[in-house]
């Protein structure tokens, strides 16, 4: 059964009609070919219409769609299976919410890292809903240092509702782990490409997000806080999440306009999950183009450009 978001109700109704007509033809031998074609056309149109006018909150919902592809699916496609997953932070344990390893994309040897959400109830728990603990960030850093040592570009996939807020996370220094990643990533002497593929929640996302190039897929969000938490804090109730989503300017389109990301990667109409391969191809094109370009830049220059880019972010008045 497909999962429909609240605003996809018209699509759901049409698809139910479609199913009925297919059934009618199969079981009762009624010729509904004409109707089926009409409904299919209508579905396409409706979907296009809905998806060309998504509100920021609706994009947040698409970014969290349970059927959306996650990091390991991207890695699998991009590397065509020429990938070895590496585990552990060498300190505490292996964080299942942060995955990474070495692989090859069309001849480019790279290190791939990303937050990983689970594909079903059991796996979602196993992956801690994509919320890394400090060891996740330290594992990511270890892999980045490995990349630097062997001069391999780093590609990160960002998809997290936030770094995990727990007792052990605090005991093991969640803040320090993220902070160190920001500092080390800024100065890493190999190319870094970051892509927000789902949710980009705050420091938990930025912890693997300091790249020479930072992209967002079309239906993702990236901000300092989730719309729900923002609503709770500023309006003192969770009822203003739609309004908060608008105020935060968290969509790929707004982030690009504000020059906080380098580009937007197209998704199929209806979201990444409706045609994962098309999504992966779009990502691959961008990654290959950047790899070719960034590999020409000297290690020192790469770090310098990255640092300058992030240091230019922010808007102030100077009297």
């Amino acid at each position: 059964m497909a999962v429909y978001l609240p605003f996809e109700e018209p699509i759901k109704e049409l698809e139910e009609q479609l199913e009925k007509n297919i059934k009618l033809q199969k079981e009762k031998g009624v010729d509904t070919t004409e109707i089926i074609l009409q409904i299919e056309k209508k579905i396409d149109e409706t979907r296009k219409q809905i998806y060309s006018n998504l509100t920021p909150w609706q994009r947040v919902l698409v970014s969290r769609h349970p059927e959306r592809p996650y990091t390991l699916s991207y890695i699998e496609y991009l590397t065509k299976g020429n990938f070895i997953e590496l585990h552990g932070d060498r300190g505490v344990k292996d964080d299942k919410a942060m995955v990474g390893g070495i692989g090859e994309i069309e001849g480019h040897q790279v290190v791939l890292i990303g937050q990983q959400k689970g594909v079903n109830t059991k796996m979602r728990q196993y992956r801690n809903f994509g919320m890394p603990n400090p060891e996740g960030y330290r594992k990511a850093l270890r892999l980045m240092k490995l990349a630097e040592k062997f001069n391999k570009p780093v590609i990160t996939f960002i998809d997290t509702p936030g770094a995990y807020p727990g007792i052990e996370a605090e005991e093991r220094g969640q803040g320090e782990a993220i902070a160190r990643n920001l500092m080390e990533m800024a100065n890493l002497k190999v190319p870094i490409i970051c892509i927000v593929i789902g949710e980009g929640a705050s420091g938990g996302a930025l912890g693997i997000g300091v790249g020479n190039k930072v992209y967002m897929l079309e239906n993702t969000w990236y901000s300092v806080i989730s719309p729900e938490s923002c609503s709770t804090i500023l309006w003192r109730t969770a009822d203003y999440k739609e309004k908060a989503a608008e105020a935060l300017k968290l969509t790929a389109q707004d982030m690009y306009k504000n020059k906080l990301i380098d580009g937007i990667i197209k998704e199929p109409v209806g979201g990444a999950h409706t045609n994962p391969e098309e999504t992966f191809e779009n990502v691959k094109k961008v990654v290959l183009k950047d790899l070719k370009q960034l590999k020409k830049i000297s290690p020192e220059k790469l770090a310098e450009e990255r640092i300058n880019k992030f240091c230019a972010m922010g808007v102030v008045n100077e009297e």
Partner: peptide, 13 residues
Amino acid sequence: AAFSLMQMAKTSA
């Protein structure tokens, strides 16, 4: 919002 978030990267850099 995200401008604040990026100050974390800026100061760390």
